[in-house]
Design a protein around this nucleic acid. Structure first.
Lengths: 153, 153
DNA sequence: GGCGATTAATTTGTGCACGATTTAAATAGT
DNA sequence: ACTATTTAAATCGTGCACAAATTAATCGCC
């Protein structure tokens, strides 16, 4: 019995064999991959995802954004305040329903979009797989995520 | 042009089409799936991953554990202190190299393993895919993660 | 019209995750 | 032997992520 495995318990799976761990650690790897690229434009990775969502469709409420990103307002509120402080978005109460907060890009926030072509290119290169393969993996992961979300009861 | 897409910018991809977002949101879904199951035995999801690693092989250093989980000591130290306070592990300096901290399961920590069969069963049922499919997805995700880790320079 | 229930966002408290810095121990080079 | 370098943990500060509780506006129902 060699040094590496002398205390290994064969009845317990290694974390490396758990699907949840693969997803967990791959998520961290993406965060670390994005960090230096996004530092340059003053965003964190979750902030970048928010901006991508807003570049796609502006004028959403916090709730709508949360449904897109699967995040709730207690996560988004402080993050959105930081984006507001940075000058990338505005947060205004909806006059038609004062409970809602409407999110709008500022001119600076819209301009930021132009800086991200390089980010996407770097990430795509680092991931190093073709779009078709990526789509297949993604569909499988989305199905797992949606399956977990559905069976809440 | 319908209501849903009236402000959509076709030049920007939806977050839902980004592989990194699928992994990001699937990771959250797993955390939420595990939470109520692990609450019952007094662990968080990252703590559970640490325990799985230690059940597999006891007596590791913080560094070795970090290499397994892709986490560094600034994340692990406070988490391990909480596991120590909870009575599941001990943290002792290695007398042969006082820089290192050795991690050992307590009797209670070892006993906890018996409570996790039910957890694994629930997760497997929620994910709802066969082991073979899971392995294929996992291999693809691991390859992406390892590819990202490798190209640091 | 008024009031209980619902809804949207915020606040609060805990626990990761990680870059950067610090502390202390071991090792290397002369 | 002694200093410079390297290594392992811990510490510090910032920013998610989320449950639970709170606040305030709207809706539903009578």
């Amino acid at each position: 019995m060699n040094q590496m495995t002398q205390n290994a318990d064969p009845g317990i799976p290694d974390v490396s064999e758990m699907l949840c761990f693969s997803i967990y650690s791959a998520g961290h790897a993406f965060t670390q991959l994005y960090r230096p690229l996004l530092d340059a434009i003053g965003l964190t990775y979750p902030q970048y995802l928010v901006m991508v969502a807003l570049w796609r469709r502006d004028g959403r409420t916090v709730k709508e954004l949360g449904e897109t990103l699967f995040l709730d307002s207690s996560t988004l509120t402080p993050l959105l305040k930081r984006l507001e402080t940075a000058g990338f978005i505005t947060r205004t109460r909806n006059p038609r329903d004062e409970r809602q907060v409407l999110l709008h890009l500022t001119e600076e926030g819209r301009r930021l979009k132009e800086s991200t072509a390089e980010v996407s290119r770097c990430v795509q290169e680092a991931v190093g797989i073709d779009a078709d393969t990526a789509n297949k993996i993604q569909a499988a992961i989305d199905a797992i995520r949606d399956g977990i979300h559905k069976r809440k009861p």
